[in-house]
């Protein structure tokens, strides 16, 4: 997967998480996904359609999700308040992915995006040849946040890219 598709997601996660949590974050690692994705905690998924197609899973381990929800809500959120924790993760996913999409759009890629949905299955689809997935792990003061990005150029766009590349 091309880095120019990934970089906006890294930058966006960095900016949104740092602002939301009022503390610095760091990238622990970036790995290519070889097996089917296994959910780590509370996860949200966004499907992209357009010049770039694929899906992004924003995944926060359970303890970190609870802390994130509390920090973002400005009050202590109980672990029994699962709805609020899910809402917090969905909204963070919306902000991180939305900001990344904004950057990609400003680079000339056009697509349509729907609101994030809760990703409840334990395991996602395995990467395919044309939809490689990259897993990013971010360290935050509240715990680990993962983002699994599996994107590819739409066929028409891929042909245009090939023509430009000569």
């Amino acid at each position: 997967m091309r880095m120019d598709l990934i970089q906006p997601f890294i930058n966006s996660a960095d900016a949104v998480l740092a602002q939301g949590l009022q503390s610095p974050i760091s990238i622990e690692n970036l790995t290519m996904e070889e097996e089917a994705y296994r959910r780590k905690g509370v996860a949200a998924a966004v499907i992209l359609k357009g010049d770039i197609e694929g899906r992004i899973i924003f995944d926060v381990d359970a303890e970190a999700a609870l802390q994130l929800a509390s920090r973002l809500a400005g009050v202590a959120v109980s672990e029994t308040n699962e709805d609020l924790v899910r809402e917090a993760v969905l909204e963070l996913a919306n902000q991180v992915i939305g900001n990344a999409i904004t950057t990609l759009n400003d680079q000339g890629f056009h697509f349509h995006v729907r609101p994030p949905t809760l990703h409840t299955s334990e395991q996602g689809s395995k990467s395919s040849e044309d939809t490689e997935a990259l897993v990013m792990c971010f360290n935050t003061a509240s715990g680990k946040v993962f983002m699994n990005v599996a994107l590819r150029y739409h066929r028409r766009r891929a042909v245009e890219q090939a023509v430009v590349a000569g």
Partner: peptide, 24 residues
């Protein structure tokens, strides 16, 4: 909105919105 690309902003303003603020 978190999605703040130019087409969205222009479309919103053309249809009567007064301003745009990006999330977060």
């Amino acid at each position: 909105s978190s999605v703040g690309y130019q087409e969205n902003i222009v479309a919103a303003l053309q249809r009567g919105a007064r301003h745009f603020v990006q999330k977060p």
